[in-house]
Amino acid sequence: MAASSSYMASTKFSMLGWLGKGNKFSKSNSNSSPSTISAQQQAQVQEQEDMKAQEAAAPGQEKAKQPEGTRLRPVEPQVNVKSKNMSREYGGQWLSSATRHVRIYAAYIDPVTCEFDQSQMDKLTLILDPTNEFVWTSETCNKVYACFQELVDHYEGAPLTEYTLRLIGSDVEHYIRKLLYDGEIKYNMNARVLNFSMGKPRIMFNNNNLDGEVPDAQ
């Protein structure tokens, strides 16, 4: 079972609408150079697949760009990340959109230590399915990350508000539902809470056997 995964994308959202005091700082999009999966990261991926996800912000796997040149542009992993800007005087700056399978935070969350760095508001972190309602493989995870990256690029220039993050989260959820109906992901029957939140399984649930393979009753 794949553990919950996280993905970080840097974003070109305009912050002009956000900080009302005219604090205009435009962030530059740090397009990380393509990096291939190193052997050590692969091992880290393997052992984290055995972990079960617990509460919020469970650590995920580091994601790296595929050598085939998909659209994933992850942010370089950072060392010595400390939780910043989490205290009360920064209250109201915790931009997030959280639904059952998709949690997007406008911060940098370290995947290993779960330090939540709020001051880096030019990055969005996606935490995918922390409750493991579906069975994830790394390809399906990467598909969702690619969709997320596309959406972030599409929303470039939009004000960085919870409304926008909610729109992005909803689009990712619709993409996950599409993957479910196409049969690429399945419900996890060992999940702690099994309530089929994206529709109960039906006959012909996965559209890829539409060519009449359902046998007739004899």
Binding site: T99, R100, V102, R166, L167, G169, S170, E173, H174, N195, F196, S197, M198, G199, K200
Partner: peptide, 11 residues
């Protein structure tokens, strides 16, 4: 209203 994700599909 934008097409926000609903928490649970109706069965």
């Amino acid at each position: 209203a934008p097409n926000f994700y609903e928490i649970q599909d109706t069965h």
